[in-house]
């Protein structure tokens, strides 16, 4: 059976999230959340800040304790590519882009290689498409936020994962980079990759995702973007209830 874009409904989902609750102290960050992530689709997660989007990704990564169940029906490598919101990287570590890609993908200690670091042949076209080939020798902490985010995305795509988790890359990506990133993401479903994309950019959701879920502690709505992203829903999801009830706020 070929897994491709649009196989959708009949095939069992890649990831089934069932009544997952994550508590931080007494408060639940996400509360009895159930979502199906279909195979080979781009599934966007939207919602207000602090609504539990990143927490959901961390639960999927197994990095945070939760109650409930997350089932994965891996068919290929079962590999997860992860693009965090931002790297915790200071200028104390002078790691270059080429070295970062080597350290992420290889087991051999970095200092055991004396010759110049060259990216693997399968990485070269990705470097060009993400417009990173001229940055290989630059140090990671010197790059702009957008450039760094593209490097991290490239890291997540090598080797090709079965599930790609992207945490809010839209915010930090420059306009030129954004087109490159989006065209690359759009090709992933055809390669059998499922992507879960946390974003604030609703236009981006419309452009590239097949499904969108709005998360504010609980699932507010979920479905194909064109059908569910209506003005009312988006407004009520992103604004606290009291603001919607009395939309006029005195200017400060």
């Amino acid at each position: 059976m070929t897994v491709g874009a649009g196989v959708g409904a009949a095939a069992p989902p890649l990831i089934e999230v069932r009544a997952v609750t994550v508590r931080h102290g007494a408060e639940s960050v996400i509360d009895r959340v159930s979502i199906d992530f279909a195979r080979a689709e781009i599934h966007a997660i939207i919602g207000p800040n602090g609504g539990g989007k990143t927490t959901l990704l961390r639960a999927l990564l197994g990095q945070v304790p939760f109650t409930g169940e997350i089932r994965a029906g891996w068919r290929a490598s079962g590999r997860i590519g992860y693009v965090p919101q931002r790297l915790r990287l200071g200028s104390a570590l002078p790691i270059t882009v080429a070295e970062f890609l080597f350290v992420a993908a290889q087991r051999r200690p970095l200092w055991s290689r004396w010759q110049r670091l060259r990216p693997d042949p399968e990485v070269a076209p990705l470097l060009r498409r993400l417009q990173l080939d001229h940055l290989l020798g630059r140090r990671l902490f010197e790059l702009s936020g957008g450039e760094r985010q593209r490097v991290v995305l490239l890291q997540a795509l090598v080797p090709l994962p079965e599930l790609l988790l992207l945490d809010g890359p839209a915010g930090g990506i420059d306009r030129v980079g954004l087109e490159a990133v989006e065209s690359m993401l759009q090709e992933l479903p055809a390669q059998g990759v499922t992507a879960i994309l946390v974003t604030h950019d609703l236009d981006q959701v419309m452009r590239i995702s097949q499904r969108v879920t709005c998360l504010h502690h609980q699932v507010r709505f979920s479905g194909p973007p064109a059908a569910v992203l209506t003005d009312d829903r988006v407004l009520s999801a992103f604004r606290p209830a009291e603001l919607v009830a009395s939309p006029v706020e005195a200017p400060r």
Binding site: Y82, L110, V152
Partner: peptide
């Protein structure tokens, strides 16, 4: 060695 550096850049990325 590489994993130690990667986890100091980002522990969650390393865990993934």
């Amino acid at each position: 060695f590489n994993g130690l550096f990667l986890s100091s850049v980002d522990p969650e990325l390393a865990a993934a």
